[in-house]
């Protein structure tokens, strides 16, 4: 557990590509927080920018009114693709955490900069895991399960599971399985986790 992300005051950026389920992930986190009685504000990307381009959501688990997170003040970056993770990296505050779908780390020779900013990166190869479960669309729930089990996403696991269980019946079982796979990866395969604690 990183211990730096005490609920409920948490700022989360969700980044990915159009079609990766950024909005689904955003709603999942927001609804799970509401289930706990936490106030939520945030911002979604809709329209033209959804067509395969970069998609970014902001979520504040806080009694705030402004929907957007200022660069350099986010606690957690949840990224479904490594280039989009890097593109959104400047939203993280010093000491923030990046949880990313990647084979091994972010690339781009960022080691020194990340150390300087005390940013921890947790990478999980979620795409092959999702394909193994039958659908690339599961990357989002796998990564959320992973972030939750790591303690990077400060929402108790039962709240996330309960929210998924209320979702559309067609995808419910698959989503819950994906979530579990991500959570298991955090517990069972520490080798898949890259840490750069500052």
């Amino acid at each position: 557990m990183t211990g730096v992300l005490a609920p409920p005051e948490t700022r989360i950026i969700v980044a990915g590509l159009g079609g990766q389920g950024v909005i689904f992930a955003t709603r999942l986190i927001a609804q799970a927080a509401v289930r706990l009685g936490w106030p939520v504000v945030g911002s979604e990307t809709h329209g033209m920018s959804q067509r395969g381009g970069s998609v970014l959501s902001h979520i504040k688990l806080a009694a705030a009114e402004a929907p957007l997170i200022r660069r350099g003040t986010a606690d957690l970056l949840l990224a479904f693709e490594r280039h989009e993770a890097v593109r959104a990296l400047h939203y993280l505050r010093s000491g923030g955490v990046c949880v990313v779908n990647a084979e091994d780390g972010l690339g781009y020779d960022l080691k020194e900069a990340l150390e300087q900013a005390s940013i921890t990166v947790h990478a999980l190869p979620a795409t092959p895991m999702a394909m193994a479960q039958g659908s690339a669309a599961l990357v989002n729930v796998i990564l959320i399960g992973f972030a939750c089990a790591l303690g990077a996403l400060p929402i108790p696991e039962p709240a996330l599971r309960a929210t998924l269980a209320e979702g559309s019946a067609a995808r419910r079982e698959q989503n819950l399985r994906g979530f579990s796979a991500g959570a298991d990866a955090a517990a069972k395969a520490p080798s898949a986790v890259e840490r750069r604690d500052g």
Partner: peptide, 12 residues
């Protein structure tokens, strides 16, 4: 801003 990261310069 808290972090010195400048991602704009990277070849994304």
């Amino acid at each position: 801003p808290a972090t010195p990261l400048r991602v704009e310069a990277l070849p994304l």
